[in-house]
Simulated scan of single mutants.
Amino acid sequence: MDRLSCMKTFIRIVEAGTISSAANELGQSSQLTGKQLRTLEHSLGVQLISRTTRSQSLTDSGHLFYERAKIILAEMEEAENLISETRAIPRGNLRISAPITFGSQVLASKLPEYLKQNPEVSLELCLSNRTVDLVEERFDAVFRTGELPDSQLFARALAPYQMIICAAPEYLRQAGKLRVPQDLKKHQCLIFTHTSMRTEWIFQGPDGQVSVPVTGRFKTDNSEALLAAALSGLGIIMQPYPLMSTEIAAGRLVRILPDYEVPNRPVHVLYAQDRRMTPRLRSFIDFCTTHFSQ
Rank of each mutant, 00 (worst) to 15 (best):
E137R: 10
E85T: 02
L178A: 09
S128F: 01
L107Q: 07
L58N: 04
T215Y: 06
H187Y: 03
S122Y: 02
I191G: 07
I202D: 01
G233K: 06
S30R: 15
Q56G: 15
A175S: 15
F10T: 03
L125Y: 08
G34V: 12
I165E: 09
R179L: 14
C189R: 08
Q56C: 10
H268T: 15
F284D: 04
Q209M: 12
L281S: 05
S30N: 13
L107S: 05
R87A: 12
I89A: 12
T39H: 10
R173N: 10
V142Q: 04
L281W: 04
I11S: 05
N81Y: 06
G216S: 08
R144I: 13
P169Q: 08
R265C: 09
F292K: 07
S283E: 02
Q162H: 12
Q31L: 14
Q152E: 11
T101D: 14
I11G: 01
G92Q: 05
S122E: 13
T193S: 15
P240V: 02
V269L: 09
D207I: 02
T290N: 03
N222K: 13
T145L: 11
F203R: 09
T195L: 03
I237Q: 03
R91W: 02
G17W: 11
R38K: 15
I164V: 15
R252A: 10
T53D: 13
G146I: 09
E25Q: 15
P169W: 09
Q209T: 14
A22K: 08
L178Y: 09
I256C: 11
L44G: 03
Q152C: 00
F143S: 08
L190Q: 06
N24I: 00
H268Q: 11
F10A: 04
L111N: 07
R198Q: 15
G176D: 06
I164Y: 01
E15C: 01
M197F: 14
T145Q: 14
L82K: 11
S84C: 07
R95L: 05
T9R: 12
I49A: 05
E15I: 01
G208T: 06
L226K: 02
R252M: 03
I96F: 08
E113C: 01
L148R: 07
R255P: 13
T86C: 10
C126N: 14
G216F: 10
P160K: 06
S43W: 00
E136T: 11
F139H: 09
C6L: 02
T289I: 14
A98H: 05
Y241N: 04
Y66G: 00
A167D: 05
W201C: 07
T215H: 14
T215C: 05
S84V: 09
F203G: 11
F102I: 06
G146H: 09
Q31K: 13
G17L: 07
G45D: 01
V132S: 04
